[in-house]
Every structure is written in C-alpha cells, then in structure tokens.
Nucleic acid binder design. Sequence first.
DNA 1: TTCCGTGCAAACCCTTTGCACCTTT
DNA 2: AAAGGTGCAAAGGGTTTGCACGGAA
Lengths: 142, 142
Amino acid sequence: MNAPSGQRASRQREVILRELCGLRCHPTADELYDRVRKTLPRISLGTVYRNLELMTENGLILKLGPGERRRFDGNAHPHPHVRCLACGRVDDIAPELEPPALTDADLQGYQIIGCTIEYTGICPDCRQASPAFLGTVPPGED
Amino acid sequence: MNAPSGQRASRQREVILRELCGLRCHPTADELYDRVRKTLPRISLGTVYRNLELMTENGLILKLGPGERRRFDGNAHPHPHVRCLACGRVDDIAPELEPPALTDADLQGYQIIGCTIEYTGICPDCRQASPAFLGTVPPGED
DNA sequence: TTCCGTGCAAACCCTTTGCACCTTT
DNA sequence: AAAGGTGCAAAGGGTTTGCACGGAA
C-alpha cells in the first residue's frame, strides 16, 4: 500500500506532505498550494493535485468528502447512506441509526448542528458483476 | 423553512420533486435530468439545478455530501470530522469514536468497507464573529 | 400586469492532462 | 541513460448565471 518501487522522492512531494501533516485542520488543494508556495514559490497547482492524488493512493493521506458528484435525496430527514465504491450508487442504510453522541470535551467550542454518516462498500450488483469484489480488500477508488 | 410566499408553483418543480421522491436511491443532478426529461422533454439542466438548490433551501430535499470543495487530511486513518457551515473549515472531532455497527439485516447485500462520519456545526471563531450563530437555528448554507 | 421561473448558452471553478524540460536513480 | 516528476497552459466536467421570453398569481 506504500510507495511502489517505481516511485521517486521529490522535494515537492516532501514539502506538501510535511505541510499537510503539520496542520490540524484539513485544507483544500489550493489552500495547501498557497502554503507550500511559501517554501517552493515555483511549484504549480497541478503538481499539488498530482501529489495529493498519489499520496492518497499510497495510503499516506486521506481524501475527504464525496468520492464524486453531488447527489440528492428526496427524503429531507437526515439519515445514513451507503455509497458503492465501484459504481457510485448511493442507497439508504440502517435508517433507525442515531449519530453517536459527543461529549462536551469533544466539541472544542463547536456548536453541533447535524451529522452525516456515510458507509462505503460494494453494492450487490457490483459484487455479482465482478469477482474481484468478493474478497475483503477494498478496490482502489477513494 | 418551507416555500417562501414570493415563490410560485411550476410544473418543472413538481415533476422534479415527484421523480426524486419516487426513487429509493439518490441520483446526481443529471441522472435526475435524464429521468425528468421523459416527462418534460424541453426542460433544461439549469432548471434542474436551480430547483434542486431551491428545494434544498426550503428543506424539501437533502443535498448529500459535504457542501463544497474537496479537502485533504494528513492523517490516513479514517476518523470523524466536523465541518463549519459558516466558513467551511474542517477539524477532527472525537477521534476515539467508532462507526455504529450494522446488523446483517441492514446490509441489503452491501459489502461494507468503511464509514465516514462528519458532524456539521459552527466553529468557535464563527460563533464569536457572528451573533446570529449563537442561537440554535442553523444558517442557510448547506 | 407582475415578476417568478424557464430554456439556452456562456461563464465559472475546480481538477485533470499533454507536453517538453528537469531530476532522481 | 532511463524513467519518473515538474511547470505551464489548455482541456474537461460539473455547476452556476445572464438574458429575454413564457406563465402563474
């Protein structure tokens, strides 16, 4: 899961990773780009994106947020979903499930308004369509 | 929270809403566009987007997934996050928290691989900056 | 008659990609 | 030298928006 042999070290990658790991909040690609440019003024945004993608694949970092396009739900009451990593389909799951309660110590001054729970997995159709999904190893998607 | 007085009925909105509510999975805007076009062949994708946005604001439907741009996390181990609805900032929260377990009955044939938990709320900075956030009512953002 | 909603197309924005040059191995 | 990585700029793809027309109130 770590850097494949055919991969080389680069200063850009090193700086991006160090910068990202040094933050306790979670920046967007161009926020990170701005920060990294203080050290490497000539780096390009494309390089930042390429390396973030690479490091995600190598399991060094996490890509937050929806795998892909935005989706809509005709049921306006928040409830848990499952997203198929193979085909992107989204279904409801365990509708009765309640978001885990937080302690005051957890809050760090945040006022909580809601909670989104999204499981990821492989849907029945994709499991049937591709034997590769029958095992326990997740596919390469984010 | 429902349709403001200055809002009119339209066949397009009605068809979009009926179509969306009739689905048990959760389509993207253009998947919905394709379906709605079977009833209203001349509807435009822009109208679909505009109405989805409007219905989300009116609380009739749910927009799934984080509100905005993708973010990255230097910690590759999945863990819960909080997103500030006012400024978009994302922080870690309750790192020890485990995803709720699902029963076999919940799974519907899905093979579960992971789980994302994201709380939404107002961060300390925004609560301090804007008195409007001191109450319990969420702001209009998604 | 208002003025909100629509269709159309252009504009936007974030992200990805092709290419020639540079750097690591 | 070979092959991956970079900067730059253009292309992509989803979403938003300006405008003039159509339709609900």
